[in-house]
Simulated assay, not measured.
Amino acid sequence: MRSLVGNWVCALQVFDESPERNKPGSKLLWNVLINGCCKVSDLRKVTELFEAMPKRNVGSWNSLINGFMRDGEVEPRELFDHMPEKNVVSWTTMVTGYSQNGHQEKALSMFSKILEMGVKPNDLTVVSVLSACAKIGALEAGVQIHKYLSSNGFQLNKAIGTALMDKHAKCGNVESANRVFGMTKEKDLCTWSVMIWGWAIHGCFQQACEYLDKMKSKGEEFQSLSKGFNK
């Protein structure tokens, strides 16, 4: 982190001395600097850069809000409400930030607002709201989100499939988790791990062992993970 901070100090010095920052089309340069300051948690500089920008776009606002969400100490809802323009990234930043910062009900409420406003969520939005459901055992909300996905052409890729499985398992329905597992064509280490964990926490140790054996048979990458389960 110290090296990263040092690099950004140098980058900011170069930026401050560059005449390019005030030219038309320089918004991308400003946004990159704002994102960098967010990564090193320099929210004072983030705010300073944002206020100094000659012209902002939706990406500028998204970067600012993401910075405050990453910090976790400041409620950025007022900033979000004052955005002159929002896109799906704006909404997803709020849902993801709330979910990661432990405000699961706010994440669910924000997702409901997304649908109410007619904005189509992306895969990250869905994964984040399903994570929020799983963390608080919001079974009914999870069921409604699953129905929404089925009705709106979302594919059960490994990210969404794994999030759905996790939600079902944590909300007490391991059989539904297993059905989603079967329908998820692309599976990675996390997908298998969530399903094995789901069987195990519900006392289905035979199924957990069977899936562990199946995972081992998938190749060396799965075998390396399975060593952790056998310790």
Rank of each mutant, 00 (worst) to 15 (best):
V9F: 01
F181A: 04
D213M: 04
V5E: 03
W30C: 10
L189D: 14
D42I: 01
M69L: 08
N62R: 02
L28K: 11
K147S: 15
K106F: 08
K106Q: 15
G161K: 11
M94C: 09
F229H: 06
M195K: 02
S99V: 08
C38F: 03
V174F: 05
K45Y: 07
G172N: 04
V46Q: 09
G161M: 03
N62M: 04
R2F: 07
A11I: 07
G142N: 02
S150A: 12
A177Y: 00
T47G: 03
V46Y: 11
M183R: 12
W61P: 02
H202Q: 10
D166W: 05
H146S: 09
L12A: 06
L212T: 13
G153F: 02
F222Q: 09
K158R: 14
L28A: 12
F181L: 04
H146C: 04
S131C: 09
E210H: 09
I145M: 06
E85K: 13
V14G: 08
M69S: 01
Q13N: 11
N152S: 10
V143L: 10
P84S: 02
Q206K: 15
T92D: 06
D188F: 13
C171E: 00
E140N: 06
R70M: 13
V14D: 14
S18G: 05
N57V: 02
A141V: 12
L115K: 08
S3E: 06
V58R: 06
N101E: 05
K170H: 03
